[in-house]
């Protein structure tokens, strides 16, 4: 598996008169998971969309490895789970998940294993209209995983998922992408989730987005719910909260 790092080189973006992203530079190491946290509306989704090549920066460049995002996308090595699930309403959950592989021009692997992993066993043949909001979101996550991307972009992937399921997904999904060496960018509103899942947390300021803290998460041991109770974990969470509060 190719490992791809992500370079953002002074990217900026404005919509009409509002600056949403001011020169933003960061390098995300290959195979690492990075969390972006920051207040609502600060520009996290916009940054993610520029990394995916969905929006072009007004200035500056994004490179995935040595390639521009569009090239990586055409090779089927990119996947993104959007803030809203955007499923095709006429396809079953299974077919919606398979769409990820189809679009990436990759063989459809073991969909059913993935369905079980995201806790949708028994709902594979349901259409999105027959699923709850949280279930739809899990379909969208599974769709982004099925193509085994090198670069995986997750925009608040567990936002509508209930607390119990979220806890399980937090434990079960990361090993999947870590074992494949994927480079992951995760946008989340949950400081706890950021610490639990990532190797590095970038705290962003209110709009226009600027990195106000860059915190490495060097936790030893398995990343499961027991970790949350450790003092190390609590210290990191506290540090991030403090930065967030200061920046507002």
């Amino acid at each position: 598996m190719a490992s791809v790092d992500i370079h953002c080189d002074s990217i900026t973006k404005r919509f009409g008169g509002t600056e949403v992203v001011i020169p933003f530079s960061v390098t995300l190491a290959a195979g690492q998971t990075t969390a972006l946290v920051g207040p609502s509306g600060c520009g996290k989704s916009t940054i993610l969309r520029m990394i995916a090549g969905l929006d072009t920066p007004d200035s500056g460049t994004v490179a995935l490895g040595a390639e521009p995002p569009r090239t990586v996308a055409r090779n089927g090595a990119l996947a993104m789970a959007f803030q809203d699930p955007s499923l095709l309403p006429w396809r079953s959950a299974r077919a919606n998940i398979a769409l990820g592989a189809e679009l990436a021009r990759k063989p459809v692997g073991d969909v059913d294993a993935l369905i079980d992993l995201v806790g949708l066993g028994g709902f594979a043949d349901h259409r999105p209209g027959e699923l709850s909001g949280g279930m739809r979101q899990r379909v969208a996550i599974a769709r982004s995983l099925i193509s085994e991307p090198d670069v995986l972009l997750l925009d608040e992937p567990f936002g509508a998922v209930d607390a119990m399921t979220r806890r399980r997904l937090n434990e079960d999904l990361p090993p999947l992408w870590r074992s494949r060496g994927a480079t992951v960018v995760l946008v989340t509103h949950s400081v706890q989730q950021a610490v639990l899942l990532s190797d590095r947390v970038l705290v962003l300021s209110p709009r226009p987005a600027r990195v106000v803290a860059d915190i490495p998460i060097a936790l030893t041991g398995t990343r499961d719910s027991k970790l949350v109770q450790t003092a190390e974990f609590a210290a990191l969470s506290k540090e991030i909260f403090a930065v967030l509060e200061d920046s507002i």
Binding site: A52, T71, A79, M80, S86, L88, L103, A104, S147, L153
Partner: peptide, 17 residues
């Protein structure tokens, strides 16, 4: 919806897709 076109583009697919 815009999100569907975005989804196609994330995989490098164009208007035909």
């Amino acid at each position: 919806s815009q999100t569907w076109t975005d989804l196609m583009r994330v995989y490098g697919r164009g208007p035909m897709s």
